[in-house]
Design a binder for these strands. Structure first.
Lengths: 356, 356
DNA sequence: GCGCCGTATGTAACCGGTTACATGCCGTGC
DNA sequence: GCACGGCATGTAACCGGTTACATACGGCGC
């Protein structure tokens, strides 16, 4: 149906090699010939077939991207970064969501291998123990993790220091006067980064001399936080005054649920999320959170792969800086007015900077 | 590098045809032979090359998906539906975001054509006037629009009746006692559906005998709603008591901004959004909105294309039902308590049903 | 006049699958 | 004994590009 390079060659009275050279600007083509071929291409509406090209070059100029879910804006944002960066370099992107299912991770990697993607960018449940990554390693296919905690195995990753961020959250809450904290998280089994955030948070609380925060897991998809919150705030005197949520969507749900329980944020409870999704800044109260440079992570991952595919032997930047945004959902403990403890003009500075 | 079908044939002492027949379960293969071949496949870690297959079959089993942005959960949701449905049928998905840019739409369609995707699912700025769709039409490539207003040209689309939904919003707000309304929308030039919602909204207000609502455009990306709101609520006596926002992200921003301006929602102003993104139900107040069946739209679109590619000549279902969710962000006019005018036990029923 | 280089173009093999067609075997029915 | 159909397998052309290699021409230096 569609015109092929041979049709063009015949139409222009030249050989296929000449047409190919013109399309790819490789080799010599005379000016008059080029014009004739170009004319034939337009007359027949020719579009070179990427399949044919891929078969002979053994390159697809395609990245495979695997994320747990597209419905979480944090991943959508990273994917946007990957896509934009890839597109600029003439690469395309195939995307699949695994729904946090490790079996789907493996299946998708297999599918992408059959599709002969040139490289993959992915977030898996657990980067330290992943059949999908094992497969990639044995196949020696270039890949970069994003969001995942880079495991000791030295797998290439572009991410942030989740544990440090967790510790930072504990420190900031302590600075705000909070003494009883808790963490609410999605399933740790599905997220090595949530585990790292928890570990950092607990360590931070411990080194601040605070009681061990209670940690609760919820089903992140169902987002039924009510039961967990009822339980946590059952006994007011011992209830936490600050909650650390393992991601922003969860934090937003928690804030809504607390409001409905008659525990307004931040007057009665402070809430800090994780991710820095855009919508957080438009809410009232604005969401206090740890901002991951999601878009940049996608871009850096794609850029690294482009370099690798170009033959360079660059190691990927492993850790990107995170930013703590002290939004309105986190306030001083004890119903004090925010101004009492917190001076907006002089946000505290740590090893990561604040952003208001 | 990787094993080919010929390597397997040699290893198993059979011909390539036999290997191919086994892989595709087409034609006859003896049990003993099958076992030998299977064994060779596993020993060499063979994965059949989808590129080679695509070249000879002229099918890629791939859909191209083009949406304005992945960062809007409404599109991410539809993409999830497409992906899930495609995957079940052994199809893959290439996704690109156009950033609401019609030139990028055209470029992406061109790229996907070169990639020889079997069909496309897309949302364009304006389905009635789109070079990208013109290209698809002349190439006779199967495609389905989602979200777009199906234009008079009869382009296949899976969508909702945006005008009817807009009218419904006007009607509901009128029922709640609102007499002065306004609409805030992203750029109409970038969204035929926003235009349809506006038209329906204005028509609905008109037929209810209300004053013509003021309509304001904002830059949806920048989301700088403050200036628009300041202007709208400059003169309290004539200020609107209800706002219709062309999408949920915008509505959420508007609610936050109104709160900050000392105009709490829904006590002082009611806000109704559009899309039905998941997060809306977790906010406080919960977001009143028109729910589009986004995931289902993606699924139906994919399903339709699968049927078409299978040779069936089915016409796509054009309109899916929408649902109005009367969330807490919409309340009765005049600072009355919600219970006064609204009985949660008996939500009003219209041609679309309510969902609380 | 000769050799050489840069430009310009063509021929044909190759990438890794699919598949039409040919071949051969065995069992069954007559 | 033979024809025929079902099963099993192999051969080779083909899909649409790329590219190594061959060919050819014109100009330049000597």
């Amino acid at each position: 149906m569609a015109a092929t390079i041979r049709d063009i060659a015949k139409e222009a009275g030249v050989s296929v090699a000449t047409v190919s050279r013109l399309i790819n600007k490789s080799g010599y083509v005379g000016a008059r010939t080029a014009a004739r071929v170009q004319d034939a291409i337009e007359r027949l509406g020719f579009r070179s077939n990427a399949i044919g090209r891929s078969l002979s070059t053994a390159k697809t100029r395609t990245f495979g991207v695997i994320v747990p879910a597209l419905s979480n804006p944090v991943f959508a944002e990273a994917v946007s970064g990957v896509t934009a960066c890839a597109r600029k370099a003439g690469y395309h992107v195939m995307i699949t969501a695994t729904n946090y299912d490790s079996a789907e991770e493996l299946a998708t990697v297999g599918t992408f291998m059959e599709q002969r993607v040139d490289a993959m960018i992915l977030t898996v449940a657990n980067a330290g123990k992943s059949p999908a990554l094992d497969l990639l390693d044995t196949a020696a296919l270039p890949y970069v993790l994003i969001y995942n905690e880079p495991p000791c195995t030295g797998r290439p990753a572009v991410t942030i220091d989740n544990a440090a961020a967790g510790a930072k959250v504990a420190e900031v809450l302590q600075d705000l006067g909070h003494r009883r904290m808790a963490m609410i998280s999605g399933r740790f089994a599905e997220s090595d980064r949530a585990s790292a955030r928890r570990d950092g948070f607990l360590a931070g609380a411990h080194s601040a001399g605070l009681a061990m925060p209670s940690v609760r897991e919820v089903d992140f998809i169902a987002l039924n936080v009510d039961a967990v919150l009822k339980d946590l705030f059952d006994d007011p005197p011992t209830a936490p005054t600050a909650l650390f949520c393992s991601n922003d969507l969860l934090a937003i749900s928690v804030i809504g649920a607390l409001d409905r329980m008659g525990l307004p944020v931040p007057q009665n409870v402070s809430v800090i999320g994780f991710d820095g999704i855009a919508i957080g800044t438009h809410l009232h109260p604005t969401l206090a959170t740890v901002i991951q440079p999601s878009r940049e992570m996608g871009e850096v991952a794609a850029q690294h792969l482009l370099h690798r595919l170009a033959g360079e032997k660059a190691t990927p930047p492993c850790r990107l800086p995170f930013t703590l945004r002290l939004g309105e959902s986190a306030g001083p403990a004890g119903n004090a007015r925010p101004a009492d403890l917190q001076d907006p003009a002089n946000p505290r500075e740590g090893d990561s900077h604040y952003d208001r």
